[in-house]
């Protein structure tokens, strides 16, 4: 369970990207985060994933305040998440398989087992044949599927995906939704930001809307 309390992020400017946000996300939920451009969706994701520290308020997971982790604990906290986020793009100089293996290698899984699991993950997203290519040689849809493979390969309890279907055509977008739905069915908490609510209508269990950094709508 993830709980945000009075969560705020003020960027220098000052820009109030997020203001006094209260939000509780139960484990296993499929949450859709909507809102206009600049509403604070990405900011919320970065705060939850521990990539940014809040200006006020707190994020806690299972009642443990993330701010208390300190520099030593933060990396281990981040490993609970699978990220499809522009802060964590695929590395262009490493092959698709090496990219997907990163969360496992970082967690200290043996190389051999890591690449066995990478092969399975790539097979699930339909990229088994592209394992040894570099990401820039893949199409947009393929890159997005590789990013999803990397987000789930270490079986995180939460997947955070920021506009995972942006810039994809209808077929590719539906393929991404199908994959996310499958991983959700396996028990993973899904937090998805999107500008295309209709695409996720059949799978989302809850929908929140942000506007100017505030929570303005919350429907289950």
């Amino acid at each position: 369970m993830i709980r945000c309390e009075k969560l705020a992020k003020i960027y220098p400017g000052p820009v109030a990207a997020l203001v006094d946000l209260d939000l509780t996300i139960p484990a296993g939920q499929f949450l859709l985060v909507c809102g206009h451009s600049g509403a604070g969706k990405t900011t919320l994701f970065r705060l939850i994933a521990g990539l940014e520290t809040p200006t006020h308020g707190s994020v806690s997971v299972n009642e443990h305040d993330v701010a208390r982790l300190g520099r030593g604990g933060l990396p281990y906290y981040r490993r609970r998440f699978g990220l499809v986020l522009s802060d964590a793009p695929l590395l262009p100089q490493r092959t698709v398989a090496e990219n997907v293996a990163l969360p496992l290698l970082i967690a200290g899984v043996s190389r051999r087992q890591a690449f066995e699991r990478v092969a399975l993950a790539l097979e699930r997203v339909g990229l088994a044949g592209r394992a040894h290519e570099l990401p820039p040689t893949l199409s947009g849809g393929e890159q997005q599927r590789a990013a999803i493979a990397r987000a789930v390969v270490h079986r995180p309890s939460v997947v955070i995906a920021d506009e995972p279907t942006a810039q994809l055509d209808r077929d590719n977008a539906e393929e991404v939704v199908r994959l996310l739905r499958a991983f959700h069915a396996a028990g993973v908490t899904m937090i998805i930001a999107t500008h295309d609510e209709a695409l996720f209508a059949s799978v989302a269990q809850r929908r929140i809307v942000l506007a100017n950094g505030r929570l303005v709508e919350d429907t289950w």
Binding site: R79, D87, L91, L102, I106
Partner: peptide, 16 residues
């Protein structure tokens, strides 16, 4: 730098 920030986001320690 970019690679390092990605590794960080994915939970890599300074040691790694």
């Amino acid at each position: 730098a970019q690679e390092i920030s990605v590794l960080r986001a994915l939970g890599a320690t300074d040691g790694y």
